[in-house]
Amino acid sequence: MSYIGKFRVWRGDANGGSLEDYQVEVNEGEVVLDVIHRLQATQAPDLAVRWNCKAGKCGSCSAEINGKPRLMCMTRMSTFSEDETITVTPMRAFSVIRDLVTDVSYNYEKARMVPSFQPPKDLAPGEYRMQQVDVERSQEFRKCIECFLCQNTCHVIRDHEENKPAFSGPRFLMRIAELEMHPLDTADRRDLAQDEHGLGYCNITKCCTEVCPEGIHITDNALIPMKERVAGRRYDPVVWLGNKLFRRNRA
């Protein structure tokens, strides 16, 4: 069953823009990205939109639909009523380039700040052996498709541009947690998480978890465990005393 859906799409660039109204055909089984493509093909050929796989695995078509950070390719039109006006805007934590396309280079800059995996020096590639039970925690975080919806919704940078230099956002704090929990990673990343990536800015309000299209429990399984590990190193007086007395490096 087809119908004519009402859409409001943000059009513009860094110099300014506005929400523009469109009426576009919607067919059964379609997602928002399908309709955006039809809009592009029939009424707005200059509409800029970033997309790739249309299967929720590339993380390209991140946007805000009715004010909620979502993947356009994973938002079914059947979740809206036919008379509802659907608003589509670019992600609002990042600089807009044009229309629905934003500049997400902040994320790549933060990614480069995370030191890579550091295996034991006495192990050569091909000699790594791990129990499944040891790698399961890290594997959850490997599901990340880097859509940056968690970064976009995190109020630490969404509402405070000035925090961007100090705070890396949930995606990269999760990356640090992934490596910190990796059974073969030898680096101690707790001070790094707190000092260089701003873990202390996170007030665990769980918006990153709410918007994650992969269903990763970012807050409960990465950020809070990382906060606990940092607390063990930096804020636990008993551990601190033990480290002083016994000259331990690890808690």
Binding site: A14, R92, A93, V96, T102, R158, D159
Partner: peptide, 11 residues
């Protein structure tokens, strides 16, 4: 400095 800070998309 928030969501309407240029060069973000203003609403």
């Amino acid at each position: 400095t928030g969501v309407n800070a240029p060069p973000r998309a203003r609403l």
